[in-house]
Design a protein around this nucleic acid. Structure first.
Lengths: 219, 219
DNA sequence: GTCTATAGCTTGATAGAC
DNA sequence: GTCTATCAAGCTATAGAC
């Protein structure tokens, strides 16, 4: 299936991405991946060394695209802001917007990636074995950017806000099907347009929550 | 190890809970679970039928406790509110507070459960196979409660707000170790006291975000 | 309720021809 | 870069004695 259109290495990554997302890393065998990719079992070890190497390649190729878009948007904001504070909603949008657009219009692969990375990010094993290193530099830049967007708030408040943002974002792009079960199908976890319209003001208001307390006390 | 203190069935659940949380459902063998529990391989099938039955038993025994506490707090709120709206912060606290207290003071098992359930909730396979049914009735009650706490907001806004709350909560109790990597150990994902103090106002402000827009337009 | 023993199959990884 | 063949180990589940 799908032989010849793309090269073996890419086909293996595409199929692995989908199956890892559906069943988890240990829930799929290399035999199943290679069979569905129309390749031979030995090709995984030839191209990626190990099963784990295949997983890392799958994640790395998406993170590169996502990180570059996020950083470019953030640099645009920084250039426009000069010495002033960054607009909070824009920083939220610079972080989540690229993921939203790639998940919406980037093809089926990005949907699979979203489900895969939500499982990986909630797994201590994968994080402690260094898989999140690919993502850390950009995350650190955005924590600093959120501090610049909220100069009146303590570092502690910004750090926890970023933590809550990550949980919200990961769950959003996992598209688990949970919300359709809870609402009888009236709302859909794949409706990213509706979710994105709500998530930016939701998170921005959360970030500002304690800032509002400070302002109340000062007035 | 640990033989005789508790019965075999409980020991198997305790060890499975920890190992499933550490390595995922397919990342652990029944041999490893039974060995670490000091039991024989065949005891899993005797007590739980299948490996999957063991997972469901592990999750069900915690959900029962958690759901009962959440519902009791919500019923107290409803009794105190009479015909008026429910206080938003109190509804958030009724949902997240019991989980927070059990995870903080309920022993190591609740920590393992938090990590396990965060992986399961982000896995489409486990949700579609009905594992989330255990949790749905209480979740539906709380969506209705959030609507009662925010009478000016549309159902749509409340539903997405609850969706964001779930992502935040799951990630919070997964204690992935991510935030210590991002802050050089200055903040810790196991510091639930600090996180809980921030998460309630954060989520309440997020829920109110669009309500504020409505009020601005009306004034 | 606990144990041993084992059936029947699948796993990740590799060796070596082409 | 691709293929076949295979290794050594692991797996879930069950049968049946006690």
């Amino acid at each position: 299936m799908a032989r010849g259109r793309t090269d073996t290495k890419t086909r293996l990554m595409d199929v692995a991405e989908k199956l890892f997302a559906d069943h988890g890393f240990d829930g799929v065998s290399l035999r199943r991946i290679t069979t569905e990719a129309g390749a031979q079992l030995a090709m995984v070890n030839y191209h990626f060394g190990t099963k784990r190497g295949l997983l890392e390649a799958v994640i790395a190729r998406r993170i590169e695209v996502l990180s570059e878009q996020r950083v470019r948007l953030l640099e645009d904001l920084e250039a426009a802001a000069g010495d002033g504070p960054l607009p909070l909603e824009d920083v939220v949008a610079a972080f989540i917007g690229p993921y939203y657009r790639l998940s919406s219009n980037g093809g089926r692969g990005w949907k699979n990636y979203g489900r895969l990375v939500a499982q990986g990010a909630n797994s201590r094993a994968l994080i402690q074995h260094g898989l999140s290193n690919l993502f850390d530099p950009v995350a650190k830049r955005f924590i600093a950017a959120f501090q610049r967007a909220l100069p009146e708030r303590s570092e502690e408040q910004v750090v926890w806000g970023f933590h809550f943002l990550m949980g919200t974002m990961l769950y959003m792009f996992a598209e688990t099907g949970r919300i359709e079960k809870l609402t009888g199908g009236k709302y859909r976890s794949g409706d990213l347009d509706a979710m994105y319209a709500h998530v930016v003001p939701f998170l921005a208001a959360g970030f500002r929550a304690c800032e509002a307390q400070v302002q109340r006390q000062a007035s």
